[in-house]
Nucleic acid binder design. Structure first.
Lengths: 192, 192
DNA sequence: CGATTCTTTGAAAACAGTCAATCTGTGTGG
DNA sequence: CCACACAGATTGACTGTTTTCAAAGAATCG
C-alpha cells in the first residue's frame, strides 16, 4: 500500500480498482530544490500531490516582496485554486523547497476521475472545504492576534513544516519581517 | 421576477419550476437591527440569503475583542461554513446591522434541493469557490499590504457596504483599531 | 431633549520596519 | 582539504507606525 492510497483511504472509502485507476492516471514527477512548478502568469493546469518533500505557494508584489500563501508537505495538495478553476493566469509561484516527489493530474483527467469515481469527488470536496476553513481561521488569526500569537499558532498548526523551512519564509507567511520574527523567537527561547 | 430569482438566474440557468421550488422551500424572516441570527456555541443549521438589509459575521476573542469575518448585504449569503458542514458549535455570531429581510433553508432542505436541482448545486459550488478565492485574496492583502492599502482594497471591493457600516466595524474587519482607521481616513480626505 | 453609539483628537508607550553590520552554516570548486 | 561564496539568521541603532488611554466632539434614536 503506497502513500497516495494510504492518504485517500484515510479520507474516504475506496475500492481497490478505484485506487488503481486514480494512481495510474497520475503523472509522477520529481523536482530538485528551488525548481519552479508554476510561474505567475501561467495557468495552473494541474493538481499536485506531494509524496515526499516540500513545496511553497507564494505571490510576489510589485515591489518584489514575496508572500507565502502556504506550504505543502507530504500528503498535501498544491494548486492555485483560482487559476485552476477559472483557467486564467495565476498570481502564484509554486516552488520546491526540498527535492520533491509528486504526482500530478490535469484538470481533464481529474474531471474524468470525478465522473467515474464518486468517492474521489467527495474527497476533493472535503479537501476544498478543509482548505476554506483553514483560510478563514487564518484570516481570523491575522486580524485579531499579535505577531507573537500568530507565530505560536503557525508552529502549533505546522509542527513538522516549521522546522524544515527557512525562518524568513515563515516570516513572509505571517506577514512580518525576518528581523521581527527573529526577535520574537529570541524572546521565546529566553523564556525556557 | 423577484430578488432571489434574479440572483439565481444571474449565476446559472434555471427552469421556472426549479426557481419556484427553491423559493417555496425557503423560510422568510425579517429581523430588526441588532438582532442575532447565530450565537457562538450554537450550531449553524441554516444558510441565510439576504434580500434586503445587512448582516455581519464576527467572532469574539477571550478578551472580548470583536473581529468581523465579513459582511453580507443584498444577494449575499451568510453562514458559518465550518459549523454548518461539520455540525459542530460555531465560533461565530451573525448579527443584523440594519433591519433585514432574509430567506433561510435548513441543511436538510438544501440537500434535497441539491439532489433535485442540479443547477442549484452548481451554483452552490460556485459560490463556495468564489468565497474561497476571496479569502485567499484577503489573506494575501493582510500579509503583504499596509493598513492604508487594506482600507483602499476594502473600499474598492465593497463600494456600497463601507458606507453603511460603522467605521469601527471596518476597523475590526481590517484588524486595526478604530483610532488608526480614523487617522488613515483623515489623511485620505486631506489628499483631495 | 437625554442617552447611547460612534468618531475624532492628543500624547505617550509599545511595536514593527529599515538599514547596515556581523555571524553561522552549507556547499562548491580549486 | 581548504577557501570562498552564498543563503540564512541575528543584532543594534534608528525611524516610522500602531496601540493605548483618556477626553471630547458628532451623530442618531427613542
Amino acid at each position: 500500500m503506497n502513500q497516495l492510497d494510504q492518504y485517500l483511504r484515510s479520507k474516504v472509502q475506496f475500492a481497490d480498482e478505484e485506487l488503481l485507476r486514480i494512481q495510474t492516471s497520475a503523472t509522477p514527477l520529481t523536482v530538485r530544490k528551488r525548481q519552479l512548478l508554476l510561474r505567475a502568469g501561467d495557468v495552473c493546469r494541474h493538481k499536485l500531490f506531494v509524496l515526499r518533500g516540500l513545496l511553497r505557494v507564494y505571490r510576489v508584489s510589485k515591489d518584489g516582496t514575496e508572500s507565502v500563501m502556504w506550504f505543502a508537505a507530504e500528503s498535501q495538495w498544491a494548486i492555485d485554486p483560482e487559476s485552476y478553476t477559472t483557467e486564467t493566469p495565476s498570481h502564484c509561484y509554486i516552488e520546491a523547497l526540498e527535492d520533491t516527489a509528486l504526482l500530478l493530474w490535469t484538470k481533464e483527467t481529474m474531471n474524468e476521475l470525478f465522473a467515474a469515481i464518486l468517492p474521489f469527488r467527495q474527497l476533493s470536496d472535503r479537501v476544498r472545504e478543509e482548505s476554506h476553513n483553514r483560510s478563514l481561521q487564518r484570516i481570523y488569526i491575522n486580524i485579531s492576534h499579535t505577531a507573537e500569537e500568530k507565530y505560536d499558532a503557525f508552529v502549533a498548526d505546522n509542527p513538522t513544516v516549521f522546522r524544515r523551512v527557512p525562518l524568513h519564509m515563515v516570516a513572509s507567511y505571517l506577514g512580518v519581517t525576518r528581523e521581527t520574527l527573529s526577535r520574537i523567537r529570541h524572546k521565546h527561547h529566553q523564556l525556557r
